[in-house]
Design a protein around this nucleic acid. Structure first.
Lengths: 334, 334
DNA sequence: CTGAAAGCGCTTACAG
DNA sequence: CTGAAAGCGCTTACAG
């Protein structure tokens, strides 16, 4: 109504000397159209600067070209550059595939909240969820036939499609590095072990011990919450009770930096007395003093992987989860 | 086609005993409908679990209910938690107003690229731009009648609508604080002064000097680039040439932390010998040692303000730019 | 204040 | 391989 100067199928059809149905077929890649007529259509599109109207397409076809990226309305989540970076990876890949990213930052709590309502309303072709606590909604959507992909691993094993960093493998890499450096007593400061990332990093830490015939002592497993403060506090405590500690794997860089602070305040030095490895390779890992040895993950790549899984699902392909390799970045702290 | 079990106006109309036109009027808040019939419509909507089909609405009305948030395909931008947080503020407020956020991470460079094409294609009701370098596209869209709001200030003065943190005022606050603490020679490490935020923070620094009858010496204005490294390097240099420096205002926290490092490596201490103030109040400001005195800005509030401006524009209201106040957070470094 | 009807710009069986 | 026609689910003058 407001932009009725824009060309429609009607003008393209006239310009190319074909029917609107043929225009539609050509524009949707139907190969059964005679090449010569197809090229006339393409020429007309070019000449008139034609661009498809998404609303009309959506109404007629039932496909909206929109993929929801649902982020729980938990400030800490989106303030984390991690998820923002994942989002950018997703958006870019979707865009290349003529799909748009619908960003939904809202409370996903109630299974009948506005988000649920919207997603079940057929307004999107698929939904991507971040850092997923509650499965109820996701499962239901999936059951209803909506393609759903999770960024990060679901907590339990389920048929949900997901892409994730190899948290287990990365943590094992980190711990193996400490062990190979001669550390005899390696503690770990975990993240939220209720969530899969935190649990897998803990499992990786334990796995590395098993590989060398050790068993990580319970006393050396400290439950942190990804904050600097928790890393610092837990390290200070454990250094009192277990002064023999000579290595620490923290489940993220911020806690690792907190650990280093506590170690230094206890009169010890890093890496001479205690070696520390983090996880994330965040900005401060390079700039801290000592600089931090850590596990780098391909965050944009994770976003891209998620988007690719979505596109494959949309195409009806059978897809399996994708796990992205991590890389050990050695700096001064270990 | 796929979700034809969902109710449409047709069933609502039958259920309520009115015409489809009346259903439309009620659902669009037309007050001229008889209250009794209106409530019958609402009851029917409730009973049938009706939800409007956006594609159909968009096609018929020309309004899509979609607002684009355009982010330049420059990784550094979106990896910055700042913009992610702004996005979340935007998305939340738009959602409350029944508008969806279309996240577009792409190169905005070419004025005829896919983004331009898309935005000019009438697929969105409005567009929000972040951290804007090139005005060409934005101006053009605005001229074409598309509501456009900028998050952050445009470089030059223009009629563009925007919301921004009070970078000028915040920098002045920071500098005044150093001056009031008795600092005689306050240097500044700027951000990118080609962009408005960087320039305004520099201007605020100069303004605070003017207020006390001083003029900031050219030699004390150091051009950084928001990285820890630049803060550290420039501080080390200026401490050599201008050892009288006793205060530093850095245009962001990361550079402030770099400055502190350099100060300490030169054998001086913070805040005894040199006081340092940052800008942002990022995570590390609390956790650094010494903790950082800095300027806090309301980032989610900025997003909300941007969204509110967009909504007002959409409603045809006359809107003026919004500048959000900053707050000085005093910690150990100054 | 209300309804019948046309129209928004595509897609898709259906028939050829 | 191609076209005429119906239809997707809303909105909006128009007439009353």
């Amino acid at each position: 109504m407001k932009t009725n100067e824009r060309p429609t199928y009607s003008q393209i059809a006239i310009h190319a000397g074909v029917s609107e149905a043929t225009v539609s077929r050509v524009l949707n890649g139907d190969l059964k159209v005679h090449p010569e007529r197809a090229s006339r259509v393409h020429a007309a599109v070019e000449a008139l600067g034609y661009k498809k109207n998404r609303a009309a397409t959506a109404l007629a076809s039932g496909r909206t070209g929109l993929i929801a990226v649902v982020i729980d309305d938990d400030l800490s989540v989106f303030a984390d550059p991690f998820w923002a970076t994942v989002s950018s990876g997703i958006s870019r890949v979707l865009l290349e595939n003529e799909l748009q990213t619908l960003l939904m930052v809202a409370s996903v709590d109630k299974a009948d909240g506005p988000v649920a309502h919207y997603l079940e309303g057929g307004e999107v072709d698929g939904a991507i969820f971040f850092q997923l606590h509650k499965h109820a909604l996701v499962r239901r959507l999936s059951k209803q036939g909506l393609p759903v992909v999770i960024a990060g691993s679901p907590n339990s094993n389920s048929e949900l499609i997901f892409a994730d960093t190899d948290n287990f493998g990365g943590a094992a890499q980190a711990t193996r590095h400490l062990l190979s450096l001669g550390c005899q007593n390696v503690a770990t400061i975990t993240g939220d072990v209720e969530a899969s990332a935190g649990l897998q990093r803990l499992n990786g830490y334990q796995q590395a011990h098993r590989e060398v015939g050790k068993i990580a002592s319970k006393a050396l497993i400290l439950q942190g919450d990804y904050t600097f403060e928790s890393g610092m506090r837990l390290t200070a405590q454990v250094l009192e009770t277990n002064p023999e500690i000579d290595g620490i794997f923290a489940a993220n860089d911020l806690m690792a930096l907190g650990a280093i602070r506590a170690i230094e305040e206890s009169g010890r030095s890093v890496p001479q007395d205690v070696k520390v490895v983090g996880f994330d390779d965040s900005v401060m890992a390079t700039n801290s003093k000592p600089s931090l040895t850590t596990i780098r993950q391909d965050i944009v790549g994770l976003g891209a992987a998620v988007a690719e899984l979505m596109i494959a699902s949309l195409n009806g392909e059978i897809v399996t989860p994708r796990i992205l390799k991590t890389e050990l970045v050695i700096r001064e702290s270990a």
